[in-house]
Simulated scan of single mutants.
Amino acid sequence: MSLADKVWKNKRVADLEDLVVAELARAAGRSTWEQFMKLDGILTGIGDGADARLAYQMSYPVLA
């Protein structure tokens, strides 16, 4: 969940990604590097749309 929250805002946290990559690689029986390359592509794609998403979200402020 933490990784999803960070990537949604286009924030990359290397230590967190390393933990996720290691677990995914173990579960999938892939090398860590192979799994990193797959995940990096996915996270980059999600992060690329962050500015537009956040601008849209901020156009509807929460009123207290």
Rank of each mutant, 00 (worst) to 15 (best):
M1Y: 06
L3V: 07
L3Q: 06
D5I: 13
K6F: 15
V7N: 02
V7D: 01
W8L: 08
K9Q: 12
K9H: 14
K9G: 00
N10I: 03
N10Q: 10
K11Y: 12
R12P: 01
R12S: 03
A14L: 07
D15F: 05
D15P: 08
L16H: 03
L16S: 02
E17S: 04
D18C: 01
L19R: 09
V21E: 00
V21H: 00
V21L: 00
A22M: 09
L24E: 04
L24D: 01
A25I: 01
R26A: 10
R26I: 03
A28F: 09
R30L: 10
W33R: 15
E34K: 06
E34Y: 03
Q35D: 01
Q35V: 01
Q35M: 15
F36Q: 11
F36E: 12
F36S: 07
F36T: 08
L39V: 04
D40F: 12
G41K: 11
G41W: 07
I42S: 05
I42V: 10
L43E: 02
L43Y: 05
T44Y: 11
G45Y: 11
I46E: 05
I46L: 15
D48F: 13
D48A: 12
G49T: 14
A50C: 00
D51R: 10
A52N: 06
R53C: 01
L54P: 02
A55I: 01
Y60P: 01
P61N: 00
V62Q: 12
V62N: 10
V62P: 04
A64R: 08
A64T: 11
A64W: 08
